[in-house]
Amino acid sequence: MDLDIQGLRVLVTAGAAGIGLEIARSFVREGSKVHVCDVDDAALASLLTSDPDLTQSRADVASRSDVSRLFDEALQGLGGLDVLVNNAGIAGPTARVDEVDPEDWDRTLSVNITGQFNCARLAVRHLRESGNASIVNLSSAAGRFGFPLRSPYSAAKWATVGFTKTLAMELGPLGIRVNAILPGVVEGERIRRVIGSKAAARGISYEEMENELLRHVSLRTAVTPQQIADQIVFLCSPRGRTISGQAIAIDGDTQSLA
């Protein structure tokens, strides 16, 4: 399928590794120009050899000064902006709510939802000049279910859905589409850390915790970063031109995270 996105100008936050890197690479394969940011210096350095087509910045999306510099550098490299993918997020603490360190709560929300605001507010004036403009915000299955022992993360991911639907209404008249992606259990190092933390908190084995998570997935399998990237690239192409305000689950039909 020809998605007709050659030359599309894309900014992906936390794009030096994991899901973000797969998203960036998927756009590049379709002929788009992509700028990524990350806080992982080693991951950014590795891109210079593994993905030389990507331009990059070091930026923490929770820092407004970092985000301001990021947009200056991204726009200089891309020559404009058609797509913002708000991918940056952290897992946050694993603990009962009365045991969560308030600083951990603040940091989780600062990155996972305020970071999306920090980027979106600067993107709008550039996206409105595009003929094919999109914002994609990464939420989670935790953005439609409760997630025991992960209250900061779940709260932020629910907020992402509300933020997305509101922006779709505000920005639709400007020709900017806004959607949220809600991954479930995603293969990779991050989910392994999450499963390990929850297993330790509950006093069960890693295998028991993993099996419990997948038991709530109808397809009994995790999803891959590539499957998430495929959906995002489609949404941002002209073929997704009337899809906006949606919270799209890519989760194997997850029924619960409890």
Rank of each mutant, 00 (worst) to 15 (best):
D72W: 01
C37Q: 00
S139M: 12
E30C: 12
N118M: 05
S50R: 06
N137G: 07
L21W: 04
D53T: 11
V10H: 02
R125S: 15
Q76A: 15
G15D: 00
S139W: 13
R58C: 07
N132I: 09
G115C: 11
A24S: 11
L21A: 06
I23P: 10
G31E: 07
L70F: 08
T55K: 08
V61N: 02
V97A: 11
V124C: 11
S63P: 02
A43W: 02
D66A: 04
G131A: 14
S65W: 13
A42V: 14
A43E: 03
L11I: 14
T94H: 08
A133K: 05
R96D: 01
S140A: 05
V85P: 10
R69W: 05
L11P: 06
G20I: 06
A95M: 06
E73F: 00
R121K: 13
E22R: 09
A74T: 12
S63Y: 04
Q76F: 13
L138K: 02
R107C: 02
A120T: 14
N132S: 14
A123P: 10
V67D: 04
L48K: 15
A123Q: 07
R69A: 14
A43F: 02
S68G: 15
L47N: 05
D98I: 07
G15P: 00
T108F: 11
A14V: 10
V85A: 05
N112Y: 08
D40T: 09
L127P: 04
I23E: 04
R58D: 08
V61C: 05
R25H: 12
D104P: 00
E73W: 01
S65T: 05
A88R: 01
L11N: 11
R107F: 05
S46R: 15
S57Y: 04
L81H: 01
Q76Y: 09
E22V: 06
S32C: 00
R107M: 01
F117P: 05
